[in-house]
Design a binder for these strands. Structure first.
Lengths: 336, 336
DNA sequence: GCGCTTTTGTAAAGCGCTTTATCAAACCGC
DNA sequence: GCGGTTTGATAAAGCGCTTTACAAAAGCGC
């Protein structure tokens, strides 16, 4: 050890009586070596508490063995479901031997700055917008990535997402089976891709079931509590009374509160179905009937897709839709 | 540009008709240069879309300009308050010009692996345990860090934390002012440092106010819903009836539900105070009276402490306690 | 014990930057 | 127009690894 600083590969080589090439190869399991040589090297590594220098290694090998998950965090995005995604993805990526990190950006600039360092060989993108700047940036940079969620333009990129056509079906058929016919849909801001996709799926299903599609039955919240209340008022202000409502989990909480404040009981007067089985859903009063997205399976599929892309940059892009599962709790009941 | 791959500093130098030293210096604002030279270099950078190679740069400069926040994510830690921390810290660190990333670990190994890459010059640690392995590891590695929260052993490390003595006072004095005297404390698992600290503060205050300290008034939950219910049952099973209860926000939600299921009304029969103003607190029914921790100020103080430590590795450690603020909502009322 | 392959190892180049001398030219006072 | 300083630039070394090309030693069939 050169006195100060961390030990280098030279220190290990000297200590073990071999060349640095041998140390490097042994540490990266390349080539074959006498068990005895391997033992000597490993012992020296242990004794000097040697850690390969990341910068040097990635400069020489042009590999970093680290991937990142990119999340957009705004004051509104407090859904603990996001924490589930973080945890699930962290776990599955770490298991694969890659370093995993989460990058949180508020603006394009901080994402761009970090993405172009090249620290990460690959990216997982979540909270995808319809025109997501991260997608175009990464494409430009030539950095492999997988989109968890669908931007408008999905051509040529790997996508993993919930099968929203199916989630819409689960929610709607559950309500239909309970006898509901006047089923409203309260959409999240349509700038989020999934919101538009879901709305489309809902409409297609209404048509399929021969329920006249009615603009009265659709409203959009801007994502704030106030916006949700306004949307709900709009829904209630016209047409025949609504007996059931499908919405996202977070607005659903507000819906539950608001309905209660209007003197309406859930599920006796109105049934409410959420869409993502956020940890909050079970805590709501009444506990929310919702759709479980299988976060673990999404995480796994995304990690797998990224691993594949990293190995075979030219492989054809995959488009994976993960099926969901209805979780019946206390917020839905028969139509009276 | 050498045909394939990204442009290097040599390409820029050639393009601008200067040496690579000049390019490097200009890009790092070192030394003085003719405005004209600067313009030529910048123009070449722009034209070739040059980005310095992170690995090469940090190898040569022994700096990475990136810091990380370390979080421990378990299935139970779904408090969206964590997201607030993430967002607030990400924002303040990014503003300082450093790359920011979040590292999520499930086990010691993945933390150790990533921490010893040296990608991060400095760390912010949150969700601190009493004996936190990350603290000893980073100390061993000689990597600068700031602990958000207090491990048992705080000697020689930078700490930023909530002033729990004060939060206990805020909660207790609020309840005392409402006339409550039988005030229970439902602690989170004492393996979390803050939980023990808070309990101690609560006890000290009871003494200060001449309320006999009574073991009947303290219970501990293991963090699960079932554990909270058990703890609550224990509290209710002995002694005179309790009129108010102080606990953490997440257990408070369970407390609210459980009390309701027992036919007790909040706040008419029992007042409940939370401890961290989680985004969930406002959503609870009734909305939870709680203590706002000033996440932004914690984030700022922590980032500041880390920046200082990075600049002056030998500076004396700081110990910063951030005061909190009572948020009165609907879960507390006068003692009847 | 000769050619052949396989095994085990090495020296040296180079990844793309920053940094440390150095130095030529321009400027300055006198 | 001569020392001395400032300005604006450069060449070369080196950060700590991986990789390529090459070589000595060992094993093997006959």
């Amino acid at each position: 050890m050169s006195g100060k600083g961390m030990p280098t590969i030279y220190d290990i080589a000297r200590e073990a009586g071999v060349s640095i090439t041998t140390v490097s190869n042994i540490l990266n399991n390349k080539g074959r070596f006498k068990p005895e040589t391997v033992a000597r090297v490993l012992e020296a590594v242990e004794r000097l508490r040697y850690r390969p220098n990341f910068a040097a290694r990635s400069l020489a090998a042009r590999r970093t063995y680290t991937v990142a998950l990119s999340a957009l965090l705004t004051p509104e995005s407090f859904d603990p479901l996001n924490l589930q995604y973080f945890g699930a993805i962290a776990q599955v990526v770490s298991r694969s031997g890659f370093n995993f990190l989460l990058h949180i950006s508020h603006d394009r600039e901080s994402f761009e700055r970090f993405a172009s360092t090249g620290i990460c060989e690959g990216w997982l993108l979540m909270m995808i917008r319809r025109q997501d700047e991260r997608v175009s940036l990464l494409k430009d940079l030539g950095v492999p990535f997988v989109s968890i969620g669908r931007p408008d333009e999905v051509e040529g990129i790997d996508v993993v997402d919930t099968d929203f056509e199916q989630t819409a079906r689960l929610a709607l058929e559950h309500l239909l089976a309970l006898g509901h016919r006047r089923i409203a849909y309260l959409a999240e801001p349509l700038e989020f891709g999934y919101s538009a996709i879901r709305l489309r799926a809902y409409r297609a299903l209404l048509r399929e079931y021969g329920l006249e599609e009615n603009a009265d039955l659709v409203a959009e919240t801007d994502g704030t509590e106030a916006g949700t209340v306004r949307a709900l008022e709009a829904l209630w202000s016209k047409g025949e009374p609504i007996t059931a409502i499908i919405t996202h989990d977070i607005p659903a909480l507000t819906v539950l509160q608001t309905l209660k404040s209007w003197g309406l009981r859930v599920p006796e007067d109105v049934s409410v179905v959420g869409c993502s089985d956020s940890p909050l859903a079970a805590l709501a009063d009444p506990p929310l009937t919702t759709i479980n997205l299988h976060v673990d399976r999404i995480a796994e599929a995304a990690a797998e897709a990224l691993a594949r892309r990293l190995q075979e940059p030219e492989a054809p892009p995959v488009y994976t839709l993960i099926p969901a599962r209805l979780v019946v709790r206390g917020s839905t009941g028969p139509c009276r």
